[in-house]
Design a binder for these strands. Structure first.
Lengths: 199, 199
DNA sequence: GGTTGAATTGAACGGATGTTCAGTGACAAT
DNA sequence: ATTGTCACTGAACATCCGTTCAATTCAACC
């Protein structure tokens, strides 16, 4: 019964995710048809429905998988301890790197929220909130330690994430600045915005 | 020959803009049909084409008008002189207020760029760049005066605008904080991120 | 009150949409 | 050689799309 590796299905499944990710990011969910996605995979439109119940679920799963991967990667990156300021710097570098490596998924996760059903929207927002809370906790710890000063930890978390995610809208490898240099510049601004001082 | 004020056309025209703005912002350009827009205006689909040559131009004009209004309002708000730090604070407050007052247009101008033809995209990007340059000039002046310190004026301008525009994604009147309080908090973070010190 | 001309209708155009499903073809197991 | 099963095709479904245009309505002018 068990199919050998290399069966068509084992190839088509992942390729579908990839194609949908790329096309949704480039043209937007509403502007991409199931037939276009199928063509990109090299398959007829009907075959897609062996891998997803509908277009909406396909989008939702791309977004949810992305956010789960983000949270998992953050958990893994596990900075041992250190001051809150050091952890804030670590967060900023992690955020920029992770987002630079997955520009398509990031773009979709920010742009296509309105195309989700209320249930899927709630799941996605829940995951996003968890990530935001990770940053907020660092800011709260920083306040307690006295090495960070922010007027409001909730707002600061959102403001800093907006600033960091903004890198994705303009950064292209091979431009005036290297990715490492951009990272340093943003870290500098993030730390200053959070009122970091030597602990 | 000249029609009296109150003719149908003089009503339908502006109402079309309003309806398109609201619907594009809520559901996205690609997801809104000309028939939906027409229904919102209280007119048949064909009538829309008396006011715009096509859907694409309708979108482009909404975006271009928004950005022109932004630049015009900034020119008007004309802070006389003052230190660069004071002008930066003024910019931050202006940005938050203007964007809060036009959430729909702001949303469209950020989300629907990919639905523009290359020509329209270039026009929109040019206007956006002009606005960005206004902030960059303040940062450059601040460096020269010594009252601001940013690692890179171009990046800082984009980073600060991303942070300030981010307010629109979560702020709703009547929440935990008033608009004025949010403004103060963001101004604090912007000034700190730009390394402001008493001139 | 009849004429003009602009504002709008409503039907039509060809084509695209998401989704379904009976049928096809290929491969593995018997 | 036959069977069984899985991956996939290709046509069909009803509905929607942006856009055009001849026909109509209606207010303003002579």
């Amino acid at each position: 019964m068990a199919r050998k590796p290399g069966s068509r299905a084992e190839i088509t499944g992942p390729r579908l995710r990839d194609a949908a990710l790329r096309l949704f990011a480039r043209d937007g969910y509403a502007a991409v048809s199931m037939r276009q996605i199928a063509a990109e995979v090299g398959v007829q439109a009907g075959a897609i429905y062996l891998y997803t119940p509908d277009k909406q679920t396909l989008l939702a799963e791309l977004m949810i998988d992305h956010l789960k991967a983000l949270l998992a990667a953050w958990d893994d990156s596990a900075l041992p301890g250190g001051s809150a300021a050091a952890r804030l710097e670590h967060f900023a570098r992690f955020h920029i790197r992770f987002h630079a490596a997955r520009a398509d998924a990031v773009f979709i996760a920010y742009m296509e929220l309105r195309n989700l059903t209320p249930e899927n929207f709630a799941r996605v927002e829940g995951l996003r909130k968890r990530y935001e809370t990770e940053l907020e906790r660092i800011l709260q710890a920083g306040q307690a330690e006295g090495c960070l000063t922010v007027p409001d930890t909730k707002l600061a978390a959102m403001a800093l994430i907006a600033m960091l995610t903004g890198v994705n809208t303009w950064f292209r490898e091979g431009g005036r600045l290297t990715r490492a240099r951009v990272e340093d510049i943003y870290v500098d601004m993030v730390l200053k915005a959070a009122g970091a001082r030597r602990a």
